[in-house]
């Protein structure tokens, strides 16, 4: 029997707290609870992209395949989180703003982030397991990370429909303490998923490398 992954218990625990323990928002009502899905997905997508770019940078510098596998694992997990952030955001937007989508700076820059992450995967897929593919994917991953600070600052730099940051800002968070704790718990739980998934993917890639014909550095 397969063991239930530990992160799934953390995620479940946080979502039960988010649904039943965290208070209802006075202005938005129950729909605000989507924050416990949307924000942890978005934060961890940004974190994963940032770390993936770091690994990609080290790969380009050292040319050690392990770093490339790290970057690939992180990119794939981050792409999934970014897609989930877009999906939950769309649902929440429909509920509170009245629209599924709008081309404001936060939504647009985040969509660009997702497309760059997807692009990293596509580039690797198109070029196969060659050093060229690894280098190209590394470059796209680094470009994706350049979008991370733009995503974060977008609500400050431009007029947007999306509200400003509630937590990641210089002033104190504009949330009740209970809400904030659940949100931070959600961020940790989803972060756990990110690292567990990226790690599992790295291991799987290592196996593929050893069994399949893997074109090593310097042979192309």
């Amino acid at each position: 029997m397969k063991v239930i992954p530990k992160w799934s218990i953390a995620v479940l625990a946080v979502y039960i707290l988010g649904l039943y323990w965290a208070p209802t928002d006075g202005a938005m009502g129950e729909s605000y609870r989507l924050i416990y899905l949307h924000v942890p997905f978005a934060w961890n997508a940004l974190l994963g992209t940032f770390l993936a770019a770091g690994a990609a940078g080290i790969y380009l510098w050292k040319r050690e395949e392990e770093w490339d596998r790290t970057a690939q694992g992180l990119v794939e997990a981050s792409a999934f989180l970014a897609a989930m952030a877009l999906a939950t955001g769309s649902l929440w937007g429909r509920y509170t703003w009245g629209v599924w989508w709008t081309w404001d700076a936060r939504l647009t820059t985040f969509l660009i982030l997702f497309l760059l992450l997807a692009g990293t995967i596509v580039v690797r897929d198109m070029l196969g397991t060659t050093p060229r593919a690894r280098r190209a994917a590394s470059i796209v991953a680094i470009v994706a990370a350049l979008d991370v600070p733009i995503v974060h600052l977008s609500v400050r730099l431009w007029r947007t429909l999306h509200q400003d940051a509630s937590v990641l800002k210089p002033d104190r968070p504009s949330m009740d303490a209970e809400m904030l704790w659940v949100l931070l718990g959600g961020a940790v739980a989803v972060g756990w998923w990110l690292f567990a998934t990226a790690g599992a993917r790295m291991k799987a890639l290592e196996k593929v490398t050893k069994t399949d014909g893997y074109i090593a550095e310097g042979s192309s």
Partner: peptide, 25 residues
């Protein structure tokens, strides 16, 4: 043809006035 609500970044259990209104955003 489209009407969207722009709300603030405050979350609270209290009946809070949306800060979008009281600050000069």
């Amino acid at each position: 043809h489209t009407l969207m609500v722009k709300h603030g970044e405050d979350y609270s259990a209290e009946e809070h006035p949306d800060r979008e209104n009281i600050r000069s955003d």
